[in-house]
Amino acid sequence: MSTTAPTTDTHIITVQTEADQHKIEVEPGITLRQALRRHGHSPHNAVTDIANCGGRGHCGLCVVEIVEGAPPPTQALDSTLSGMGVGRLSCLVTVDHDMTVRL
């Protein structure tokens, strides 16, 4: 009988919405926006899902609240929004460890 050791090549993102909570497993190095969209969770609403910059960090429309595990901001717009308590731009957050986000 063999057992498989847990992989350290992925990270768990806990996604909280008004209705429920989901855990998604993602590979490291992708953006939080990519991870959310790949698993059917959008950081956008109906309008901003159509009118956005496509994850290039220019529009500021993919804001999420990182409840736990937030890495420090690396871009000016993300840092400004975070400093104002608005949230974080999911397109500018690289997944490099487990985290909890609220949409």
Rank of each mutant, 00 (worst) to 15 (best):
P43W: 02
C53K: 09
S2Q: 11
A76M: 08
D9A: 12
G29L: 07
R56E: 13
C62V: 00
P28H: 13
E27F: 12
R33P: 05
C91K: 02
T3L: 13
V86A: 12
N45A: 11
V67Y: 03
H41L: 12
P6T: 13
L81Y: 03
V15A: 09
I66Y: 02
V64R: 01
S79Y: 03
A46C: 04
T100M: 06
G83E: 09
H44T: 08
T100V: 12
M1R: 04
I50K: 14
H11R: 11
T10C: 04
G83T: 05
Q34W: 02
A35Q: 03
I13T: 08
R38E: 15
T80A: 09
T3F: 05
P72M: 05
I24H: 08
D98M: 07
H44Y: 15
V15D: 04
P72K: 08
S79W: 01
T8P: 00
V93Y: 06
D49S: 15
T74C: 01
G29H: 07
L92C: 12
S90V: 05
P73R: 05
A5R: 06
C91D: 09
P6A: 14
A70M: 04
D9Q: 10
A5P: 04
I13N: 07
M99I: 08
I66D: 06
H39W: 12
N45P: 01
G85W: 00
S2I: 01
V93L: 06
H58V: 11
T80Q: 06
T100G: 06
H39D: 15
L89K: 00
C91Y: 07
G69T: 09
A46N: 06
S2G: 06
I24P: 02
S90T: 08
Q16I: 14
D78K: 00
E65A: 06
P43Y: 09
P72R: 15
L32A: 13
C53F: 07
T48Q: 09
T3W: 07
D49P: 00
G83H: 02
E68I: 13
M1L: 08
C91I: 05
Q75L: 08
P43D: 14
A46R: 13
T7V: 08
E65K: 10
V15K: 13
V15T: 08
E65F: 02
V63N: 02
I66M: 11
I66T: 04
M1W: 06
G40Q: 14
A19H: 11
E25W: 03
L32D: 09
T8W: 00
V15L: 10
T14Q: 14
L103F: 08
G55L: 05
V15N: 08
T14A: 10
G57M: 06
Q16R: 15
T8V: 12
D9E: 14
G54M: 10
H41Y: 15
P72Q: 14
V64P: 01
D20H: 15
G29C: 12
N52T: 11
I30T: 04
C59D: 10
D98F: 05
P71K: 05
L36C: 12
G57E: 01
R37F: 06
H41M: 10
D98V: 02
V64Q: 04
P73V: 00
V95Q: 00
S2D: 09
H44G: 04
S90R: 03
T74L: 05
Q16K: 13
V93W: 02
I13H: 09
T94W: 00
G40S: 14
Q34N: 13
P43M: 14
I50A: 10
H41G: 12
I30E: 14
V95E: 08
L81V: 00
